[in-house]
Design a binder for these strands. Structure first.
Lengths: 247, 247
DNA sequence: CTAAAACAGGTTGTCTGACAACCTGTTTTC
DNA sequence: GAAAACAGGTTGTCAGACAACCTGTTTTAG
């Protein structure tokens, strides 16, 4: 049974109070009701207003502090920091609510992945190239079996292929940020990707798009790697966006 | 008094227990003592082992959950997630400890910024271009006054200039991730940047590097914008790395 | 004998109250 | 007039309790 992952996983996560308080305060900050430098209401005050215990408020504020949205000082209070203190980049599920946002996320992904390929073209090692080639063959084999028999394997292998390419950039930070974005897009859009893959991402023409990326990596051609990767992901995004049932 | 920011700011932040517990558990996860799927010790157990109250442990775990490192279920326990669940990209101060790490961060910054310029070259509006030009003039004016009189202003204006360019990509996600990285690099390396700017980032030759970026944006030349930006930041990073007193 | 229901123990989520550490402005003291 | 003591408020930590929930076991009903 190739359940692998993500299929039938828990969907109805029980709400957690601190999270809700956190998004509520975050909204107040990003909405402008709380400007940088402003002091938040005291924890006791917030607890009373939200109707929760202070421990809940504390956990919420601790999350905001973690991302650098607020800074709290014992004996004084918690203050909204200015935007130059943000210490995390995160993609919330809310980013997938509007179609325009999704398109922008896909664009971000496309460009970062293109940059990763370009970097990899100049920094890849031989053994990394061997692994990449092996993944490509595995993908081609799954592709040949067609969308009915090898849908999931085809999509997963492609994912793995580009993850390996990204890691061949040999820059752990670049790899980490790309992987994080990629992962979040997958987790939120996987069903859309699967449907789309079944409909339009199989076949020799598509494989040719991937082939071009590999060729560029083989040749250590930075610009070709960028262009090929960018083209490949842009087209895939276009084909996805063209689907009527998307988002 | 142009204290502006960051000068003489609080350095000796009082340690917070939950943060320390969080890094301790994180280390256990990233170090491999706790593998994906493993269950963490119970909160009570952790509290006893760390010698702190359960509220402290709870806050720590809530941070890890926020980043997608663990997933906790009421009545069952907290489990280490696999790497495909990470939901945040963050740059910790630890990233600035080793010289190699810093170089890789600067490279990441360079490439992302180059991508942002390239994007901006095709998406910028006229009014954005006007603003960018104005910032460039302001920077040129500060540059002319030299490192003795206008050091901070010169550096800050340059920062602002490239932030505006990034925002001209008109992709909020791209802008956000670049701004976050840029901000963290600045916060941790500002003194190094200042010293370096005073020594080697002033003068017509340097301004010409920036000019090339602006020209490409004017011409809406995507490739030229990328190349010019990349060249500019790579050279700056090289000049910085060449300094003996760096890191 | 089997399947459903009740039970027991353990774990996370939330609440409450308390006190320590700390900050700020005021008052008192020298 | 300056330093010291004081008072009130706020965050950080601790302790204990109970609710909500999960899992495996035992009991019960058929």
């Amino acid at each position: 049974m190739p359940d692998s992952q993500g299929l039938f996983d828990r969907i109805d996560r029980p709400r957690r109070l601190p999270d809700e308080v956190a998004v509520s305060i975050t909204a107040a900050i990003e909405g402008g009701q709380l400007a940088p430098g402003d002091r938040l209401p005291t924890e006791a005050e917030l607890a009373k207003r939200f109707g929760v215990a202070r421990t809940v408020v504390r956990e919420a504020i601790s999350l905001l502090r973690y991302d650098g949205l607020v800074d709290s000082r014992r004996g004084v209070g918690a203050f909204v920091t200015d935007a130059s203190q943000r210490s995390a980049f995160r993609i919330s599920p809310a980013c997938f609510e509007k179609r325009k946002q999704i398109v922008q996320l896909l664009k971000l992904r496309t460009w970062l992945q293109a940059g990763a390929s370009a970097l990899a073209a100049s920094t890849r090692t031989e053994s990394q190239m061997v692994q990449i080639d092996a993944l490509y063959r595995q993908m081609a084999e799954a592709d040949a079996r067609g969308p009915v028999d090898a849908l999931e394997e085809r999509v997963d292998t492609e994912l793995l292929l580009y993850r390996h390419i990204t890691e061949a950039s040999n820059n752990p930070y670049y790899a980490e940020v790309v992987a994080m974005i990629e992962t979040n897009i997958q987790n939120n859009l996987r069903s859309a990707f699967l449907k789309n893959a079944a409909a339009s991402e199989f076949g020799p023409a598509i494989m040719e798009e991937h082939r071009a990326v590999l060729d560029a990596l083989h040749a250590k051609d930075v610009e070709a790697a960028r262009t090929a990767t960018r083209t490949r992901f842009e087209r895939a995004a276009d084909r996805l966006a063209a689907r009527a049932d998307f988002a």
